[in-house]
């Protein structure tokens, strides 16, 4: 198989939501001397971008996006460890988390997938992440953007606490803070001093392209 054929195979596997095929294609890529970064960008990420576009144009349903993301991760599991040290070009990094007190992470996972598809590196801090952990990770991993979300009203204040913590530690000026989730409003974002608010993963990636 030519390089082009392999990349097409990987990309199609993501579009069609076939984790096993994505894994197989990624292994073939490595065997045939395709550079892992190339396989990620021109295979996995390209496929995910297609799914993201379809989702944005209401041509794909949310479950399809989630299944495709499974294929994306299956491929990444093979390709990421194969990147030679030092070659991983300094990509911009986005840390994502569902804040303390909330376990609803479907939205966060969609966002994560689309951010990867957008060509950025993602640090997934998980869900119900204690505020202190968000702060510690921001300091140690130095993401360019910290994206925090919640689906519930009471836990919105955990987002506020995280922003306060960044001000206290002096990291607020070193990271862009984006907030999101169903109840999160623009007035909330403004009052707590976030940089950006979104309730839509696609728009959020568009914003990242603007600021990063």
């Amino acid at each position: 198989m030519s390089k082009e054929e392999i990349l097409k195979k990987i990309s199609d596997a993501v579009v069609n939501g076939k984790p096993a095929v994505a894994k197989e294609g990624s292994e073939e890529a490595l065997k045939n001397g395709v550079r892992p970064i190339e396989a990620i960008n021109d295979g996995l990420v390209r496929g995910m971008a297609i799914v993201g576009d379809r989702f944005a144009q209401h041509q794909a349903y949310l479950p399809q996006v989630l299944i495709s993301s499974q294929a994306l991760y299956a491929g990444l599991d093979v390709l990421l460890p194969a990147i030679p040290k030092g070659e991983s070009v300094a990509k911009k990094t986005v840390a994502v988390a569902v804040v303390e007190g909330d376990v609803h992470d479907i939205g966060k996972n969609i966002l994560k997938t689309l951010i990867i598809a957008g060509g950025y590196q993602v640090i997934d801090l998980g869900r119900d992440v204690p505020t202190e952990e968000v702060l510690a990770a921001t300091e140690s991993k130095k993401p360019d953007v910290l994206a925090l979300s919640t689906l519930m009203t009471p836990t919105m204040l955990s987002i506020r606490d995280a922003v306060d913590g960044l001000k206290e530690s002096g990291y607020r000026s070193k990271v862009l803070v984006a907030v999101g989730g169903a109840p999160v409003s623009q007035t909330f974002s403004d009052e707590i001093g976030a940089d950006h608010k979104d309730n839509d993963a696609i728009h959020h990636v568009a914003w990242l392209k603007e600021v990063l």
């Binding site: 169903a182 109840p183 409003s185 007035t187 909330f188 009052e191 309730n199």
Partner: peptide, 17 residues
């Protein structure tokens, strides 16, 4: 007094920050 809107779905309204 700082207040904020709560958007979307149930419990939409305005709350005291």
């Amino acid at each position: 007094e700082k207040r904020y809107d709560v958007g979307g779905g149930l419990g939409a309204g305005n709350a005291l920050l």
